[in-house]
Amino acid sequence: MSEAPDTPVLRARGLRKEYGKGEGLIRAVDGVDLDVVAGETVAIMGPSGCGKSTLLHLFGGLDRPSGGELLLNDRRIDNLSEKALARMRRTDVSYVFQSFHLMDELTAVENVELPALLAGRSPRAARRRAEQLLDQLGLAGRARFLPSALSGGQRQRVAVARALSNEPLVVLADEPTGNLDSAATLDVLRLFEELHEYGQTLVIVTHDARIAATADRMFSMRDGALVDETRLTGGTTGKLGALVGLED
């Protein structure tokens, strides 16, 4: 990562998103201020309907804010055209979805190389990068499998590999463990931990406390606003034993 440690990669100022009008006005995102620093993992937690998915859609330009400023690498993105937003999604941000959203008729490696192809890379370079990513994520033997032949955890790994295809500045994950069982969740958590160590900037919205607990910072979201920040980095308590009654 070339950025200085404290340069915000993603910066939101007074970000708002409203639906409807008059009486039926819904403030899905209501004045969010947030700085995400390069290499940081930020989790946004909250009950369903608190607006966290909408916030993530705003960050990736899948949806347009009703107000406020949004900057990616010091560049305003809230007023970009659809086309410019699409270009931004090719290289600067990428998504990991709750239900994976893999193309059913494409093999794992074809799914992973798709963003690189959309970004105009040569087929050979895209394929090489995809195979390398699958290899790193422990899916080398599964590259030619269709998603239907993979387990939930493996599918999410493929989706993460796809998100990394164009080396994005930020990976945005929407409930990435929402459809996974306990063991597969652990698998994905390990993967995010590895990404974090590698220096990847991650923004995760979730209502799964486990995934939120692995973040550097955790925000609680209520009624469209971020209400509480928890910095989770720092020394461990070292009192694990107390958790199971082995110590007093």
Binding site: A86, R89, Y95
Partner: peptide
Amino acid sequence: RHASALARALGATPLE
């Protein structure tokens, strides 16, 4: 519908 939306989420422009 779904495949198109996904392609756009992955960076394809509406025009494309």
